[in-house]
Design a protein around this nucleic acid. Structure first.
Lengths: 129, 129
DNA sequence: TATATTAATATATTTAAATCTATTATGTGG
DNA sequence: CCACATAATAGATTTAAATATATTAATATA
């Protein structure tokens, strides 16, 4: 685990050594400090978790499917040619980050997009790259 | 690789079997077809690649750093307490998806954010989850 | 030209995630 | 209660990514 003082000390040492072209040591360390505080908690962990969930082709396909309409697991696995445990596994990961939800109807479990805004934003983001 | 006909056949078979609660077979298959066309190319591969690049804590830290200002590799590695090859490795992945760029200045190589819009959008997206 | 500095690359190892196989849990209808 | 259908979970295997170590490439300077 990284300490706030680590940042300050290491960066100051680097900047003051003259080896590195960086000049604005004091201002730089200050900003780094704020940044470290922000990143110290769970924020970074949660963010990487969200992107990791979206980094799998099967899960992106599932999301594309669920944008059509709610679907039970048996539909998803057939449409995407995957086994049932694999489908459940991926759905579990998407549910875990909160962008899909499920409801039981008899012996079927239906999955649906729980954050349409989020999914729509993804399109915009991806169009920028 | 999945064929368009696979989708149609498998989904139709499922829907017509009556085992699955899905009703709108014809419309559903049509939409699936479009979706398959869209997802068949490199689109899906590129999208998952982008999210994979963003799914690593070290790389998110690097991006946060580069939002402060351009930095050479030696600064980044010291600020984030990583070895030089690790820093270069992560920078290479971020450069590969096109959200950071680099320029050489003497013996230093400076990295910077090449798509500020993209990075700013990430904040918005993450605030929705 | 020889040497030191900065950074990329190549390879091996470690670590994490995806997939596969089997099992368990939950619900339905005879 | 039993047989069957749907879906989650558990454990083992495979596959991919991260890290560590060593080397190479490019530049600067004495």
């Amino acid at each position: 685990m990284m300490e706030k003082l680590d940042y300050e000390m290491r960066v100051k040492r680097l900047v003051e050594s003259g080896l590195c072209p960086a000049k604005d040591a004091s201002k730089y360390v200050e900003v780094l400090q704020n940044l470290t505080n922000k990143m110290d908690g769970d924020t970074l962990k949660i963010q990487s978790k969200i992107f990791k969930a979206l980094s799998d082709k099967s899960r992106l396909k599932i999301l594309a499917l669920l944008r059509i309409r709610d679907m039970c697991v048996c539909e998803i696995m057939v449409a995407l040619n995957m086994t049932q445990p694999v489908a459940s596994h991926h759905l579990g990961i998407l549910e875990n980050i909160g962008i899909v939800k499920y409801r039981r109807e008899g012996k079927w479990i239906f999955y649906s997009v729980s954050k349409p805004d989020f999914i729509n934003f993804l399109d915009k983001i991806l169009s920028l790259v």
